[in-house]
Design a protein around this nucleic acid. Structure first.
Length: 278
DNA sequence: ATTGGTTCCTGCTGGC
DNA sequence: TGCCAGCAGGAACCAA
Protein backbone atom coordinates (compact mmCIF):
# COMPACT_ATOMS: atom_id res chain seq x y z
CA UNK A 1 0.00 0.00 0.00
CA UNK A 2 2.20 2.79 -1.19
CA UNK A 3 1.75 6.03 0.73
CA UNK A 4 4.04 9.02 0.78
CA UNK A 5 7.14 7.32 2.25
CA UNK A 6 6.96 4.40 -0.16
CA UNK A 7 6.39 6.71 -3.13
CA UNK A 8 9.32 8.86 -1.98
CA UNK A 9 11.54 5.78 -1.74
CA UNK A 10 10.46 4.55 -5.17
CA UNK A 11 11.10 8.00 -6.62
CA UNK A 12 14.61 8.10 -5.17
CA UNK A 13 15.27 4.66 -6.63
CA UNK A 14 14.11 5.80 -10.04
CA UNK A 15 16.25 8.93 -9.79
CA UNK A 16 19.35 6.95 -8.81
CA UNK A 17 18.96 4.46 -11.64
CA UNK A 18 17.46 6.40 -14.52
CA UNK A 19 18.15 10.15 -14.29
CA UNK A 20 19.49 11.40 -17.63
CA UNK A 21 18.79 8.13 -19.42
CA UNK A 22 17.24 8.29 -22.86
CA UNK A 23 13.94 6.54 -23.36
CA UNK A 24 13.92 4.55 -26.59
CA UNK A 25 10.44 3.15 -26.44
CA UNK A 26 7.36 3.02 -24.25
CA UNK A 27 5.31 -0.15 -24.61
CA UNK A 28 1.77 -0.13 -23.31
CA UNK A 29 0.16 -3.54 -23.01
CA UNK A 30 -3.35 -2.13 -22.53
CA UNK A 31 -5.08 1.20 -23.16
CA UNK A 32 -5.64 2.15 -19.55
CA UNK A 33 -5.13 1.59 -15.86
CA UNK A 34 -7.65 3.33 -13.67
CA UNK A 35 -8.05 5.88 -16.45
CA UNK A 36 -7.17 5.79 -20.12
CA UNK A 37 -3.58 6.60 -20.96
CA UNK A 38 -3.30 9.93 -22.83
CA UNK A 39 -3.20 9.19 -26.57
CA UNK A 40 0.09 11.03 -27.11
CA UNK A 41 1.92 9.44 -24.19
CA UNK A 42 4.35 7.14 -26.01
CA UNK A 43 5.00 9.62 -28.78
CA UNK A 44 5.84 12.40 -26.33
CA UNK A 45 8.29 10.25 -24.37
CA UNK A 46 10.10 8.22 -26.99
CA UNK A 47 13.58 9.47 -27.85
CA UNK A 48 13.70 11.86 -24.87
CA UNK A 49 15.81 11.82 -21.75
CA UNK A 50 14.24 11.87 -18.32
CA UNK A 51 15.95 14.85 -16.77
CA UNK A 52 14.60 14.57 -13.26
CA UNK A 53 12.33 12.52 -11.01
CA UNK A 54 10.25 14.15 -8.31
CA UNK A 55 7.37 13.34 -5.99
CA UNK A 56 4.20 15.32 -5.21
CA UNK A 57 1.83 13.73 -2.69
CA UNK A 58 1.62 10.10 -3.85
CA UNK A 59 2.46 10.94 -7.46
CA UNK A 60 5.77 10.24 -9.18
CA UNK A 61 6.74 12.97 -11.65
CA UNK A 62 9.09 12.30 -14.54
CA UNK A 63 10.36 15.53 -16.04
CA UNK A 64 11.02 14.94 -19.71
CA UNK A 65 13.72 16.61 -21.78
CA UNK A 66 12.30 19.58 -23.68
CA UNK A 67 9.31 19.97 -21.35
CA UNK A 68 6.55 17.58 -20.50
CA UNK A 69 5.90 15.66 -17.32
CA UNK A 70 4.81 12.05 -17.04
CA UNK A 71 2.76 11.39 -13.91
CA UNK A 72 2.57 7.96 -12.32
CA UNK A 73 0.41 6.90 -9.40
CA UNK A 74 0.95 3.47 -7.84
CA UNK A 75 -2.58 3.12 -6.50
CA UNK A 76 -2.89 0.10 -4.24
CA UNK A 77 -0.67 -2.47 -5.85
CA UNK A 78 1.56 -0.55 -8.27
CA UNK A 79 5.22 -1.51 -8.44
CA UNK A 80 8.20 -0.18 -10.34
CA UNK A 81 10.71 -2.79 -11.43
CA UNK A 82 14.04 -2.11 -13.12
CA UNK A 83 15.50 -4.92 -15.21
CA UNK A 84 19.04 -5.34 -16.48
CA UNK A 85 19.68 -6.41 -20.09
CA UNK A 86 20.59 -10.09 -20.24
CA UNK A 87 19.15 -10.72 -16.80
CA UNK A 88 15.63 -9.53 -17.37
CA UNK A 89 12.94 -11.94 -16.17
CA UNK A 90 9.99 -12.62 -18.47
CA UNK A 91 7.36 -9.93 -18.61
CA UNK A 92 4.86 -10.22 -15.83
CA UNK A 93 1.13 -10.61 -16.35
CA UNK A 94 0.56 -7.17 -14.86
CA UNK A 95 3.48 -5.30 -16.45
CA UNK A 96 1.24 -2.69 -18.07
CA UNK A 97 3.78 -0.06 -19.13
CA UNK A 98 7.36 -0.86 -20.06
CA UNK A 99 9.82 2.00 -20.42
CA UNK A 100 12.78 0.81 -22.51
CA UNK A 101 15.93 2.90 -22.13
CA UNK A 102 19.11 3.17 -24.16
CA UNK A 103 21.30 0.18 -23.39
CA UNK A 104 18.27 -2.05 -22.84
CA UNK A 105 17.46 -1.23 -19.24
CA UNK A 106 13.73 -1.49 -18.67
CA UNK A 107 11.44 0.13 -16.16
CA UNK A 108 8.29 -1.91 -15.75
CA UNK A 109 5.18 -0.42 -14.17
CA UNK A 110 3.37 -3.44 -12.74
CA UNK A 111 -0.05 -3.04 -11.17
CA UNK A 112 -2.22 -6.08 -10.48
CA UNK A 113 -5.27 -4.21 -9.24
CA UNK A 114 -4.95 -1.40 -11.75
CA UNK A 115 -5.79 1.32 -9.27
CA UNK A 116 -2.73 3.16 -10.49
CA UNK A 117 -2.52 5.72 -13.26
CA UNK A 118 -0.12 7.03 -15.86
CA UNK A 119 -0.69 10.45 -17.31
CA UNK A 120 1.13 13.23 -19.14
CA UNK A 121 1.06 17.03 -19.09
CA UNK A 122 2.98 19.50 -21.23
CA UNK A 123 4.37 21.74 -18.50
CA UNK A 124 4.29 22.86 -14.86
CA UNK A 125 1.26 25.08 -15.41
CA UNK A 126 -0.70 22.15 -16.82
CA UNK A 127 0.43 20.04 -13.88
CA UNK A 128 -0.99 22.51 -11.36
CA UNK A 129 -4.24 22.66 -13.33
CA UNK A 130 -4.49 18.88 -13.61
CA UNK A 131 -7.63 17.50 -11.90
CA UNK A 132 -5.50 15.28 -9.68
CA UNK A 133 -3.33 18.16 -8.51
CA UNK A 134 -5.22 21.38 -8.13
CA UNK A 135 -7.07 20.22 -5.01
CA UNK A 136 -4.00 18.83 -3.28
CA UNK A 137 -3.28 20.16 0.17
CA UNK A 138 0.20 20.96 1.47
CA UNK A 139 3.05 18.51 1.50
CA UNK A 140 3.30 17.25 5.08
CA UNK A 141 7.09 17.51 4.98
CA UNK A 142 7.08 20.99 3.46
CA UNK A 143 7.28 24.40 5.12
CA UNK A 144 3.62 25.20 4.49
CA UNK A 145 2.48 22.42 6.81
CA UNK A 146 2.51 22.99 10.56
CA UNK A 147 0.22 23.13 13.59
CA UNK A 148 -1.53 26.39 12.76
CA UNK A 149 -2.03 25.56 9.08
CA UNK A 150 -3.42 22.14 9.98
CA UNK A 151 -5.72 23.68 12.60
CA UNK A 152 -6.98 26.18 10.03
CA UNK A 153 -7.88 23.51 7.49
CA UNK A 154 -9.60 21.36 10.14
CA UNK A 155 -11.58 24.21 11.64
CA UNK A 156 -15.33 23.61 11.55
CA UNK A 157 -15.00 20.14 10.09
CA UNK A 158 -17.54 17.69 11.47
CA UNK A 159 -15.98 14.50 10.17
CA UNK A 160 -13.83 12.30 12.40
CA UNK A 161 -10.18 13.33 12.34
CA UNK A 162 -9.35 9.97 10.74
CA UNK A 163 -11.45 10.80 7.68
CA UNK A 164 -10.17 14.36 7.53
CA UNK A 165 -6.54 13.24 7.35
CA UNK A 166 -7.34 10.87 4.49
CA UNK A 167 -8.75 13.84 2.58
CA UNK A 168 -5.91 14.87 0.27
CA UNK A 169 -7.16 18.49 0.34
CA UNK A 170 -6.31 18.76 4.05
CA UNK A 171 -2.83 17.29 3.77
CA UNK A 172 -1.49 15.33 0.84
CA UNK A 173 0.24 11.98 0.78
CA UNK A 174 -1.23 10.22 3.79
CA UNK A 175 -3.09 6.94 3.46
CA UNK A 176 -4.80 4.60 5.86
CA UNK A 177 -1.64 3.24 7.49
CA UNK A 178 0.16 6.48 8.25
CA UNK A 179 -3.02 8.20 9.41
CA UNK A 180 -3.46 5.45 12.01
CA UNK A 181 0.18 5.69 13.02
CA UNK A 182 0.18 9.48 13.26
CA UNK A 183 -2.99 9.58 15.37
CA UNK A 184 -1.48 6.99 17.69
CA UNK A 185 1.73 8.96 17.97
CA UNK A 186 -0.19 12.17 18.67
CA UNK A 187 -2.45 10.47 21.23
CA UNK A 188 -5.61 11.54 19.41
CA UNK A 189 -8.67 9.36 19.01
CA UNK A 190 -9.58 8.62 15.38
CA UNK A 191 -13.20 9.32 16.36
CA UNK A 192 -12.52 12.86 17.55
CA UNK A 193 -14.26 15.50 15.46
CA UNK A 194 -11.72 17.08 13.16
CA UNK A 195 -12.83 20.58 14.09
CA UNK A 196 -11.78 20.03 17.71
CA UNK A 197 -8.18 19.47 16.71
CA UNK A 198 -6.93 22.99 17.33
CA UNK A 199 -4.08 24.65 19.17
CA UNK A 200 -1.83 22.23 21.01
CA UNK A 201 -3.63 19.19 19.60
CA UNK A 202 -3.04 20.39 16.04
CA UNK A 203 0.57 21.14 16.93
CA UNK A 204 1.04 17.61 18.26
CA UNK A 205 -0.67 16.06 15.26
CA UNK A 206 1.35 18.01 12.71
CA UNK A 207 4.55 17.03 14.51
CA UNK A 208 3.45 13.38 14.68
CA UNK A 209 2.68 13.30 10.96
CA UNK A 210 6.05 14.80 10.18
CA UNK A 211 7.83 12.39 12.49
CA UNK A 212 6.07 9.22 11.32
CA UNK A 213 6.70 10.02 7.66
CA UNK A 214 10.32 11.06 8.18
CA UNK A 215 11.10 7.87 10.08
CA UNK A 216 9.46 5.72 7.44
CA UNK A 217 11.44 7.37 4.64
CA UNK A 218 14.64 6.90 6.64
CA UNK A 219 13.76 3.23 7.16
CA UNK A 220 13.26 2.79 3.43
CA UNK A 221 16.54 4.47 2.60
CA UNK A 222 18.56 2.49 5.11
CA UNK A 223 17.09 -0.89 4.27
CA UNK A 224 17.57 -0.71 0.52
CA UNK A 225 20.82 -0.24 -1.31
CA UNK A 226 20.22 2.69 -3.65
CA UNK A 227 16.53 2.10 -2.88
CA UNK A 228 16.56 -0.91 -5.21
CA UNK A 229 16.02 -4.48 -4.07
CA UNK A 230 17.96 -7.36 -5.57
CA UNK A 231 14.86 -8.23 -7.58
CA UNK A 232 14.95 -4.82 -9.23
CA UNK A 233 11.79 -3.80 -7.45
CA UNK A 234 11.86 -0.31 -6.06
CA UNK A 235 10.89 1.15 -2.80
CA UNK A 236 9.06 -1.43 -0.71
CA UNK A 237 10.63 -2.20 2.61
CA UNK A 238 9.93 -3.97 5.85
CA UNK A 239 8.42 -1.67 8.38
CA UNK A 240 7.04 -2.15 11.84
CA UNK A 241 3.79 -0.41 12.55
CA UNK A 242 2.86 0.49 16.10
CA UNK A 243 -0.88 -0.07 15.65
CA UNK A 244 -1.73 -0.76 12.00
CA UNK A 245 -2.76 -4.39 11.50
CA UNK A 246 -2.27 -5.16 15.18
CA UNK A 247 -5.82 -5.71 16.35
CA UNK A 248 -5.85 -7.58 19.68
CA UNK A 249 -2.16 -7.04 20.36
CA UNK A 250 -0.94 -5.19 23.41
CA UNK A 251 -0.53 -1.47 22.90
CA UNK A 252 3.24 -0.91 22.66
CA UNK A 253 3.04 2.39 24.53
CA UNK A 254 0.79 1.47 27.45
CA UNK A 255 1.98 -0.12 30.68
CA UNK A 256 -1.32 -1.84 31.30
CA UNK A 257 -2.76 -4.63 29.17
CA UNK A 258 -4.77 -2.39 26.85
CA UNK A 259 -5.09 -3.97 23.44
CA UNK A 260 -5.28 -2.37 20.01
CA UNK A 261 -8.80 -2.03 18.72
CA UNK A 262 -9.97 -2.17 15.14
CA UNK A 263 -13.01 -0.17 14.06
CA UNK A 264 -14.36 0.68 10.62
CA UNK A 265 -14.66 4.34 9.64
CA UNK A 266 -16.15 5.25 6.26
CA UNK A 267 -15.55 1.71 5.11
CA UNK A 268 -11.91 1.50 6.17
CA UNK A 269 -10.13 -0.15 9.04
CA UNK A 270 -8.81 2.04 11.82
CA UNK A 271 -6.45 0.67 14.47
CA UNK A 272 -5.97 2.51 17.74
CA UNK A 273 -5.46 2.35 21.49
CA UNK A 274 -8.58 3.60 23.27
CA UNK A 275 -6.63 4.40 26.41
CA UNK A 276 -3.78 6.33 24.87
CA UNK A 277 -5.77 8.14 22.18
CA UNK A 278 -8.38 10.66 23.29
C1' DA B 1 -21.06 23.14 0.64
C1' DT B 2 -20.00 19.38 2.88
C1' DT B 3 -20.11 14.73 3.68
C1' DG B 4 -20.93 9.80 3.12
C1' DG B 5 -21.38 5.89 0.21
C1' DT B 6 -20.16 3.36 -4.05
C1' DT B 7 -17.21 1.86 -7.61
C1' DC B 8 -13.17 0.17 -9.88
C1' DC B 9 -9.75 -4.40 -9.70
C1' DT B 10 -7.38 -8.85 -8.45
C1' DG B 11 -4.62 -11.47 -5.02
C1' DC B 12 -4.85 -13.30 -0.73
C1' DT B 13 -7.11 -15.37 3.35
C1' DG B 14 -10.34 -17.92 6.10
C1' DG B 15 -14.07 -20.95 6.50
C1' DC B 16 -16.32 -25.07 5.23
C1' DT C 1 -7.71 -30.31 -1.23
C1' DG C 2 -10.51 -27.09 -3.39
C1' DC C 3 -13.70 -23.69 -3.75
C1' DC C 4 -15.54 -19.22 -3.05
C1' DA C 5 -17.04 -15.18 -0.40
C1' DG C 6 -15.12 -11.41 1.64
C1' DC C 7 -11.63 -8.14 2.28
C1' DA C 8 -7.95 -4.78 1.20
C1' DG C 9 -7.65 0.31 -0.39
C1' DG C 10 -6.89 5.72 -3.41
C1' DA C 11 -9.46 8.63 -5.55
C1' DA C 12 -13.20 9.81 -8.71
C1' DC C 13 -17.81 10.05 -8.77
C1' DC C 14 -22.60 10.52 -7.27
C1' DA C 15 -26.28 11.63 -4.12
C1' DA C 16 -28.38 13.78 -0.22
Amino acid sequence: MPELPEVETVTRGLAAALTGKRLIKLELTRPDLRRAFPPNLAARLQGKRIERFARRAKYILMHIEGGGIAIAHLGMSGRMIITTPGEAPPRGKHDHAIFIFEGGVELRFNDARRFGSLDFVEDEAALEAHPSFHHLGPEPLGNAFNGPSLAASLKGKKTPIKAALLDQRVVSGLGNIYVCEALYSAGLSPNRLAGTVQGDRAERLAAAIHDVLTRAIAAGGSSLRDYVQASGELGYFQHQWKVYGREGEKCPGCDCSTVIKRIVQSGRSTFYCAKRQR
